[in-house]
Nucleic acid binder design. Sequence first.
DNA 1: CTGGGGATGGGGCCC
DNA 2: CGGGCCCCATCCCCA
Length: 475
Amino acid sequence: MDMVADLGASRLYRAPGESSHQQPQRWFNTADITASHQSNLLKQLNEQRRQELFCDCSVLVEGQLFRAHRNVLFASSGYFRMLLSRGPDGLPETVNATFDVFSPETFTVILDFIYSGQLDLSSHNVIEVMSAASYLQMNSVITYCKNFIKSSLDISVKDEDSDRCHSLSETCSFTSGVGEESTEHQQQGPRSVSPPPALWTRDNSRSQSSFMGKEPEQEGSASALKTNPSSPANELSAETDDLHDPQDPLYTLPGSERRRGKGGPKRRVPNNTRSGQHEDLDIQEARTLKAEKAEELYATLPPIVGVIGHFNKDSNPVMRFKCPFCTHTVKRKADLKRHLRCHTGERPYPCQACNKRFTRLEHLRSHFETIHQARKLVCRKCKCQVTEETGHVVCEGTRRYRMCAACIQEVGCDDIPMDGLQTANDEPALLLGVDGEEEGDTKRNWMVNEDDDLAEDSGADLIIQQVDDSDEDLQ
DNA sequence: CTGGGGATGGGGCCC
DNA sequence: CGGGCCCCATCCCCA
């Protein structure tokens, strides 16, 4: 057999006995062969499982028995790897495992994935499947679940996200479970044995919407996340925190801004390629979708579970609300809703000046006041107390801070590239609306519209100005 | 390497 | 129930 072409990972081989002069030629793409072989092998194994042929492993989940092959489980799950590789004397003829930390339905989804590569995720089971996958140490399933949740949460439908949506849909190709741990990053390769579910399309926001609306009647089926205090499922919280694309401005990782290093705030690239009318329509549509998706997000979360926290002095039970993602409980439902943002990554409060997003308005306000408004009456250099009159406001890009007159003089205006000295009543540009008109609602100062352009981060610019903050009062 | 300070995030709870 | 305040923990930067 001659190798006639090298196409990267896949190679083309000519069939035996065929010379290059013979026509027509039959080409064998080894990648196709491999995919086909793996697919057939998996089908065979699945069939054997269904007929309970050669099954040497019994898994009991809440009383329901599942039969499987230990080598398949071994190859698919870190948990089973540990379970099945212990003991110097080898394993008995049959291995039994018992689980009470997830439901039989959930394990069915997991097992079907292992044997078919099809992960039957829905908005109602994704949390429990992810929890079970975490317990069973099936990283690829966790990744799929994360992507699924992220997609559910991805309420940003900006054009700039299209490419990411595309890549997301690609990374959510649901591939074979066998050997997944070693090949889960090769999902775009020829190994993919099944197409992604219908919802994973390029425009995943829309498809997700339609998907979400597909199973409203199963609301009650989404049981609360079952956690085992000693189980790896407790890693779920950390795992869930990880699900956010650090590049996604709407769902940045908690603290990811800082982890990203000293690079400036991410700038949005204006899309000039489309007509204004089309853009307006899209923006309206995007806003509608965004609102709908936020509703869907909370509608599809696992039900909030009321648990008895403790007994008060009258021996009456005190109800608390349990987070479906972690073990945290709170007194008030509203507090739980706030807490959930640390799991969902939702950051609904963007800063007008730097586009950094926050989970809470108060955090945004605090950020805006300290970073962009120089509200702290302290000299940044010598830390001495200054007043609004004596503290000169130094602008560095979108950052503003105060320096006392002495420090200003010490630094020397010659050393500071100054764009000019603004008058006391000048509003900094970043506090204006995008079209330059001052907003009547001062809240708009730190809120940014989705279609607003970012304030330019003139990183090198340094402007010293005296500011009368009296009319910058935010509330 | 280390300690201090700033920025940020999250929880409790009051209004 | 949302907004807001206070407090604390953590991370990061810088001297």
